[in-house]
Amino acid sequence: VTPSAPSSPDSSRRPAGDAGPTRVLPPVPAGDGVSMPAERLKPEVSASGEAESAAPGLTPEEAFDALYAQAAPDLVHQTFLLTGRRALSREAVERAFQQAWQRWPEVAVDADPVGWVRAAAYEYALSPWHRLRRAHKHPDAPPAEAGRRGQELLSALLELPPPYRRTVLLYDGLGLDLPDTAAETEASTPAAANRLLHARTVLGRKDPDLTEPEELHRRLNALVAEEPVADLPAARAVRTGSEHRTRTWTRAVVGVTAVLIAMTGFTAVTAPTRYVPVNAPGETVNGVPVRGGPEKLRPEDVELRDRLRSEPNPGPERLIPVAG
């Protein structure tokens, strides 16, 4: 399933060579209810006037490596807020970039490649199958630097259902507008609004300050900034792993197809063209009980039966035998 990407990139985008601080969650101006600020987040523009996503003159490998270096650390932080599990966050982001490399011709021309990878990472991280894995059964401890309020916020987020948790992160954390949030969560706009209002209500019960979008965004940003940066594999290793996975699945599919073709051919050659009944050889059967029913008539019984049939007599003589 191709993740739905929002119409405009998130503000975590920056040139691959920029060594400045990473802004994981863009600031959200004041808003009422679920209304979006008037100023939307826009992609950064290079000195030549072209958006950074165009990446002119780069090979596919260089463009992928630049996207990975730009977005992977931020996505790991964001995914940690969704799952509370550091290893699962790194795994989800790595798997999402592997999928992006497998479908790079599609991702490279997407209006928001970061949003494409983000949606894939969120889908993988929130998969219910991870509950069956012992390593990801319980969430990790929050960072000690987050303090009591940060730990309470993370605990409150993890208590929300996954769709609500994802909606809060996209809207109040990343600053996506409501239609884009609904599209990425595969929900209608009214459903996304209801999820957002319900999530804010639940978080407000834990801390009344979290009912304000600005305070919620600030606390989310602070919580993510205090999470230590994860050790991510190199972009080349991700591309190699993606290609290896693709080759493995291709070989498996080809192998299974070849086995099915061989079995079908063998069956077609060896199967009979008509029905041949099988006559089982006779065998001696022992231990069968005696067949029930009347016994075989003796000669005198047969003679009496014939006499009764030839001399019909309705009188008492038929019932009372005559002596002599």
Rank of each mutant, 00 (worst) to 15 (best):
E123A: 14
A92E: 07
K137M: 06
F80H: 10
Q78E: 15
M36A: 15
A111C: 03
L304T: 06
D18Q: 07
V278N: 09
S242D: 12
E227P: 00
F97C: 10
T22V: 12
Y124V: 14
P163H: 06
L158K: 03
V269I: 06
D18K: 07
V107E: 01
E227R: 15
W129F: 11
V168Q: 05
D172L: 08
L153V: 05
D74S: 14
D65V: 06
A135E: 14
P9R: 02
L260Q: 08
S12W: 09
A55D: 07
R309M: 02
E300P: 04
A63T: 02
A225G: 11
E283S: 03
A92N: 06
V34F: 02
P73D: 03
R195H: 11
L169R: 03
R236G: 05
V238L: 08
F97W: 06
K42D: 11
E106H: 03
A96F: 01
Y164F: 03
P321Y: 00
Y171F: 12
Q151F: 00
L304G: 07
A252K: 10
V202C: 01
G282M: 03
A192F: 03
L82Y: 00
R23W: 04
T248R: 14
T250D: 10
R305G: 14
E62A: 15
R23K: 09
T284K: 04
L297C: 10
T270S: 08
A108F: 01
V202F: 02
P139A: 13
L75F: 08
A69Y: 02
A69R: 14
A268M: 04
A69W: 03
E50F: 03
P190R: 04
T250W: 13
P277F: 01
S242T: 09
E50A: 10
P73M: 02
L153S: 07
V93M: 06
E283M: 00
P113H: 09
L132I: 00
R165W: 05
W104C: 02
A54E: 07
K296L: 01
V202Y: 00
R23M: 13
P3I: 00
V229S: 06
V114M: 06
P142F: 01
E186K: 09
R205V: 05
V34G: 04
A100E: 08
Y122I: 06
R309K: 15
V45H: 08
A72I: 09
S155P: 00
D231R: 11
T240D: 15
N279W: 04
E212F: 00
R23Y: 02
V109L: 08
G147H: 00
A92P: 11
P277T: 13
H217Y: 05
L75H: 11
T250G: 08
S8K: 07
T267V: 10
S53R: 14
A121H: 02
V322C: 10
A120E: 12
A5Q: 09
